[in-house]
């Protein structure tokens, strides 16, 4: 089918829980696959985003690579969606924002209980951490947000079927939760 809607997904500073929740669509994935195809996504292992109709972003931005990936998605996706609490407000990773970055690294890699060979990782391939974790709407324009930690499969289903059937997406009371 030539005219499938193209979707890209990624997890930035997230736990992949939103992706797991997406997979909770279970048997609904079969009819969905008739209508959409996946481009860049952990599901396909495609590394860079081609022009897409919908981009689903899980997680906030905690490092330089997150910012690059997020901008690539914005450039390539007609509709960009903040998926889950971390994308919307930074989520649990942003709870480090009250602690200076150096202290975080010190605790994790030097002074923490049980640390062996204390050393702060400095491989040049590792993306540099940002001083604070930010929600993605502070970096690029976001078209829709799906709250929840994670948003349930029903939220994904309602949102995607609304879009695919040409309706303005909306979530009823039972589909809106922040945890």
């Amino acid at each position: 089918m030539a005219n499938k809607v193209r979707i890209a997904t990624t997890s930035l500073a997230g736990c992949f829980g939103c992706h797991m929740s997406f997979l909770d669509l279970d048997e609904r994935l079969v009819p969905l696959a008739e209508l959409v195809e996946f481009n860049r996504s952990p599901i396909t292992d495609i590394k860079h985003c081609a022009p897409c109709d919908i981009g689903l972003i899980e997680g906030g931005v905690c490092n330089a690579e997150n910012v690059h990936v997020l901008r690539e998605f914005r450039q390539n996706c007609k509709i960009l969606v903040a998926v889950g609490a971390c994308a919307i407000n930074g989520g649990l990773p942003a709870m480090r924002n009250s602690v200076p970055l150096e202290e975080c690294l010190r605790e994790a890699y030097l002074d923490g209980i049980g640390v062996e060979n204390p050393m702060i990782p400095n491989d040049p391939e590792l993306p540099l951490l940002l001083n604070q974790v930010h929600p993605i709407h502070e970096v690029v324009k976001i078209d829709y947000s799906l709250p929840g930690c994670p948003p349930s499969a029903d939220v994904f289903w309602k949102f995607l079927t609304d879009l695919l059937e040409g309706r303005e997406p909306g979530l009823d009371y039972d589909l809106v939760h922040y945890d």
Binding site: S145, P147, L171, V176
Partner: peptide, 8 residues
């Protein structure tokens, strides 16, 4: 309310 709209 589905997002926080403002910078944190």
């Amino acid at each position: 309310m589905l997002d926080n709209h403002y910078p944190h």
